[in-house]
Design a protein around this nucleic acid. Structure first.
Lengths: 120, 120
DNA sequence: CTAAAACCTGACGTTGACGTCAGAGGCAAG
DNA sequence: CTTGCCTCTGACGTCAACGTCAGGTTTTAG
């Protein structure tokens, strides 16, 4: 498949796909005329990249992690890297949970103003 | 307290505090010479702001939400806004959880290569 | 009184993940 | 062959949340 179809399938822009390649996150075979051709698995790869971006990882970090996802190579460094990012995400989840609970408290106050002086 | 102390206490930079004021997130009384003076509660306010930033909210959105946190005003719009952001955070938590689980799977593969051909 | 430290207001610089535009080539249909 | 769409490579633009620097005033410590 060519870049336009991959973009449509995975829901990201053509520009983003070229950017991923530039950052070493996504490979493509080139036709004689220079056009990119992707395998079916590229869509899954793009989904994974998007997940990691959404988790706050940078291109550089993703580029470091992906080879070890692909090859399932497990040097001590790569394991440390993976678990470090995993733990970062865990902390992020905890922080978000606290934020959500805080917002819930605010919502409860504004919806059911128990301590309020007025009453309908 | 002045801006430097607030910065130290809340762990953000002086520049950030001025920026928050510029964005309408944080108020300060001014002394005759123009220096900012903050109440004790400002530290909590900064914490809240940081939480919301960390949850991916923009200055504009935070500026919209904070008054309703302060005054506990509850217009239908503000309630909708609050719950919308709350739900966004919930979805974000869910996405992060999926990402973490995905990373866990990768870690499990690299740590305990059951399907690997080599054995020590 | 004086030097250091803290504070002020602009205003320009930074970073990451793209958006967007220009100019040129490639490809299936009629 | 040409029309229309897709693709290519640069290269500059964007946006948010600050960082940083300049040049000047204020507060504090000794």
């Amino acid at each position: 498949m060519r870049i336009g179809e991959l973009a449509t399938r995975s829901g990201v822009s053509v520009r983003a796909l070229r950017y991923y390649e530039e950052q070493g996150l996504l490979e493509a075979n080139r036709s004689g005329s220079g056009q990119r051709h992707y395998r079916e698995s590229a869509a899954d790869r793009v989904q994974l990249i998007q997940m990691l971006y959404a988790a706050g990882l940078t291109s550089r970090t993703i580029a470091d992690l992906l080879p070890c996802v692909d090859a399932q190579v497990s040097t001590p460094e790569s394991r440390a890297r993976l678990t470090a990012e995993r733990n970062r995400i865990d902390e992020q989840i905890a922080a978000l949970t606290r934020t959500r609970d805080r917002l819930d408290a605010v919502i409860a106050l504004t919806e059911d103003p128990a301590g309020c002086t007025y009453r309908d």
